[in-house]
Design a protein around this nucleic acid. Structure first.
Lengths: 337, 337
DNA sequence: GAAATAAATGTAATCGATTGCATGACGCTG
DNA sequence: CAGCGTCATGCAATCGATTACATTTATTTC
């Protein structure tokens, strides 16, 4: 019944101009006369025309989309970041394609395909374990890439990140200010850059404050609630216990508090706990969690902006790094020693 | 230095065949001779060729992508669903484009553009407030659309949903089984279909059990933690209080428990609370939340599968509805009256 | 008022893959 | 061995927009 979608030819016919003029009226309005512009716009409305992005992209040798590779889409930590990326990208007229890198079918080959210039104009990596510099293909023609939150120490691709060690320092200093002298730490997954940075921040600060970094007060974890609960079990088993614990993220802090609670240990009366991230629930957890806030939506925006700059600006893949400050949010999970 | 990406022409030249043959070797391997196939594959490897999706899509009049419209990307509830959609779509070789419908720049017009057949092959709506049937354009040529989780009562587009009223019934029956006879409910946002379904399930079950549905025991909410806290304040102000409350989602349940906790009221000792959704934190909340679990990853997969069927199967936009069962997870926020 | 310059528009090639149609090679049948 | 069907392959049109270049028209300058 209804015809296929109207094309630029249809608009040209209705407006009685050439397709070139229609195209220009859309892409460079100042290049056509006022009168023509009016006629064309009118014709577009009459026909209900919308540009065929595929054709445009083919001709312009671009894709109008950026790809975001996320290590685990199911993790709420990433959704806020994604939201920031999406907001910025769509404001700039770019589509956002997402792919979960932990899906088995996402091989290096597939990532290589995403890198194909006509598939995506740029790439944001939320997964520091990914090494695009190792992907074969024409490296000279690789579209811009920006790491966001995580990064990889083995290459110098641009990245936007939080001040993780600074945030960890804030947490430790806060505990110190409250009078705590025996401070522990729950670590993230071993191979993660964030884990390293946060641990580094904790250790340096302990050192700077002249406090001991005891081996058995550094609990292994993996950013999960369950890891926090395991850390609680370990804490309970200690002879000499730290009076305060800084967790490398909020989930583990919550799991830790939960685990202690079940054993009849109260936070903050018996132990102070500070988290990291300021996830939604932190505010409503019992007790409300003192934590290090990272502006997640902002970092997404920032990464998208950096990527778009590189896309529009052309070459200049100079390594560059932007660090966003973290902020300590004091709530009820910490108190004076 | 490095040339632009190799095209099908380059492969053809290296393999000493025509581009048509290369194309066929890729799309219909059985249509070329074994020998040619070998030569072509060899040439593809030597040149490092990958197909230009843009060109392919232009010719094939498809986009190779589906669009997911999410009401609020920052909401972790959606990320698991998205994850399921993404997994299925990428298994089928489709890209996933996301857009946040609550972003101001996402107008009906933009949604119309997504509907353009060459932009996306299909659409998954996580936002029931959206009415694609109202979008002008060629309705006959509209790509397939599937609602996921939410839906709109004013049209009969296919949808995949949870059994919300059934889940609510489970919650209420559970409370009844524990001996509770005074049962309240915290509602979601007023205009939401899920709110209605869940409330409906609660009311019907109360009715079936011969319990009273008291007006002042139905607290208004909006799915947020803060709304739960507000409900707590209202609960505290009541003369006659319900001994158990079913919340329309977990966030509100947590906010409610938190709010009560601050006022010195204990869950489950003083009130039993059951949530809805089984978000990650539910398990580690204090007390661990009894809730109605919805298989979120599954529903995403299911919606993606339904959409892909419609895309591949062609027309047949027959209204169809798939309902996934919910499951009650009993933890520690409920106990005998 | 003629020449030079600028502005507006049209013509047609192009982006890279797909595919309808044509062709040639081969084998089979009567 | 003429006639026909099958299979593999090539030629060239096509998808819909963009844009270099050409052409026409309007404006400025001396």
């Amino acid at each position: 019944m209804t015809k296929a979608f109207p094309t630029i030819q249809d608009v040209a016919r209705v407006a009685k101009v050439s397709t070139a003029t229609v195209s220009r009226a859309l892409s460079f309005p100042e290049r056509v006369s006022k009168e023509t512009r009016r006629v064309v716009i009118d014709a577009i409305e009459r026909t209900g025309y919308t540009v065929n992005q595929t054709a445009r992209n083919l001709r312009r040798k671009q894709s109008g989309a950026i790809v975001v590779l996320v290590p685990n889409l199911g993790n709420p930590f990433f959704s806020k970041i994604l939201s920031g990326i999406e907001a910025t990208a769509s404001r700039e007229g770019l589509n956002v394609l997402i792919a979960d890198t932990r899906q088995p079918q996402v091989s290096p080959r597939l990532i290589g395909e995403y890198l194909h210039a006509n598939r995506a104009d740029g790439l944001i990596l939320l997964d520091g374990a990914l090494r695009p510099d190792l992907i074969p293909g024409a490296p000279g023609k690789r579209p811009p890439i920006v790491y966001c939150c995580e990064w990889n120490e083995d290459n110098d691709l641009p990245s936007v990140r939080f001040d993780n060690s600074g945030g960890a320092a804030l947490a430790v200093r806060h505990l110190h200010d409250l009078g705590h002298r025996r401070i522990g730490h729950i670590l993230g997954p071993a191979d993660n850059v964030l884990t390293k940075e946060r641990e580094h921040g904790v250790r340096c600060t302990l050192d700077a404050l002249g406090l001991e970094a005891r081996r058995d007060w550094f609990f292994e974890g993996d950013f999960s609630l369950a890891a926090g609960a395991r850390a609680a079990a370990q804490w309970l088993a200690l002879d000499e216990r730290p009076t305060a614990v800084a967790a490398a993220n909020d989930e583990m802090a919550c799991g830790f508090i939960s685990g202690l609670h079940r054993a009849g240990v109260s936070v903050p009366d018996d132990v102070s706990v500070v988290g990291f991230d300021d996830i939604d629930i932190a505010d409503q957890f019992i007790p409300a969690l003192t934590t290090v806030r990272q502006p997640r939506s902002e970092i997404g925006e920032s990464a998208a902006t950096a990527l778009i700059e590189r896309i529009r600006g052309g070459g200049a893949d100079a390594a560059e790094m932007k660090t966003l400050a973290a902020e300590l949010i004091v709530r009820s999970s910490t108190r004076t020693a």
